[in-house]
Amino acid sequence: MSDGIPLIPVIPQALREAAHRGTLIPFVGAGASRLAGCPTWAQLADGALMACITANKFNHGQMEQIRHLSPRMKLSIARAIESEHALTIDYEKLINPFDGYQNNAVGHRVYRSLGKLSKTFVTTNYDAWLDTEILDPPLSVSTDSPVQDTVATPRVRRRIANVEDFTPANLNQENCVFHIHGSLVDPAGMVMTTRDYIRRYANDRGSDDPTRENRTLTFLEVLFQHKTVLFVGYGLEDLEILEYVIQKARQQFPSERPQARHFMLQGYFAHEYELMRSLTQYYAQCDIELIPFRRDQRDWGQLTEVLEAFAEAMPARAPLELQVQMEMESYLEP
């Protein structure tokens, strides 16, 4: 890092080894979906409120009064309006406004590369980009026409959005994606409001009553202890949720260090070198190694180049049987 921020970072050896063992799991955030044409959190929140205005259940004056609130607070207001007036906001249209799953070339590049890094994924996103495996496009063999980047038929992954299915056993299943904040398939179940977050991450695991177990925290605890996580598409605005998720998931075992090291891909401009250094130290406190890349040439589009380079260098493998056996045995230990 002393030579500046690279366009394509060197892959840490521990990350390569995790991919080789089949224990690498990408944890995908909104930054990846934004490259694929989905809105930012702020755009989603404002879009939900505009839907309320269109339905004559809110007005522009009220919108102006709350324009400085956080996206989560705005979404909480929009959800409350939905409930009060029996209104149905079309979140599918808001989150995927341009039919991006079929026609977004950048989205296909991003999620094709992500799909090569692992067999299992975790995401806080609601969209369906991870729900299918996007294959490499077929190469044209014609000498009369250039190679065309046509989209191959994707293969469906198992979508897991029900908290009851957040289990260690499912974490070792191939071709799965865990939507820990819900999915567009069930808009009512999406974690969006402040109350939703409190309920999803409430720490009731100290209770002797198994019915009060927080499946999400148990799942995340297993994830961070036994897998190597690569955070992709998270930024400064996500620090709060990252702190909460990681520290909450481990707080039952404050004296133990995790068995796996975790990583975060993050982009910075060249003049943000000192910020990057400071955040490297900050993330280290959460047992996360920052992998920085330089945004000056292509802005966040550089993440696409980085993912493609990583996918070529460390393609995914299925978890080794011995690795899975060791993990399952550890779950049975008192």
Rank of each mutant, 00 (worst) to 15 (best):
L230D: 13
N162E: 10
Q148L: 08
S145F: 15
E164W: 06
M190I: 00
R155Y: 14
V151T: 07
F178P: 09
L223H: 10
E164D: 11
M192D: 15
V177E: 01
N172D: 09
M192W: 06
A161P: 11
N170D: 15
N172P: 10
T193A: 03
T193I: 03
S145T: 15
S183Y: 08
D204Y: 11
T211V: 12
D208F: 13
Q173G: 10
V147N: 15
I160E: 02
H226T: 08
V151P: 09
I180F: 13
F166R: 01
N203V: 05
P210A: 07
T193S: 03
N170I: 00
T216N: 04
D144I: 08
A152K: 09
P168E: 02
V222Q: 09
Q148I: 12
G206P: 13
L236G: 14
V229W: 04
S207A: 06
H179F: 00
P187M: 01
A161G: 12
H226G: 08
E221W: 06
E221A: 15
P187F: 01
R199W: 10
Y234A: 07
F219H: 03
T194L: 11
S183L: 05
E174A: 14
T194C: 12
P168Q: 02
V229I: 05
A169W: 06
D149R: 12
K227D: 15
F219W: 01
R200Q: 08
T150A: 13
H181S: 02
Y197H: 06
G189W: 00
L171S: 03
F166V: 01
T143N: 12
L171V: 03
D208S: 14
G206A: 12
R205H: 10
F231R: 09
V147R: 14
N175S: 05
H181L: 02
N214M: 01
H179N: 09
R215I: 04
F219E: 07
D208Q: 13
A202H: 08
D165N: 05
T193M: 02
N203D: 12
H179P: 03
F166Y: 06
Y201R: 01
R158L: 12
N172Y: 08
D204N: 15
H226F: 11
T150P: 14
G233A: 05
T194A: 08
D196M: 01
L230V: 03
I180W: 11
E174D: 11
T218Y: 15
R205A: 15
F231G: 08
D186W: 01
R205I: 06
P168Y: 01
V163H: 14
R155Q: 14
V147W: 07
L230E: 12
A188V: 08
D208V: 14
P210F: 05
E213M: 13
V191S: 04
D186G: 07
D208P: 14
Y201E: 07
N214W: 03
F219I: 00
V185H: 12
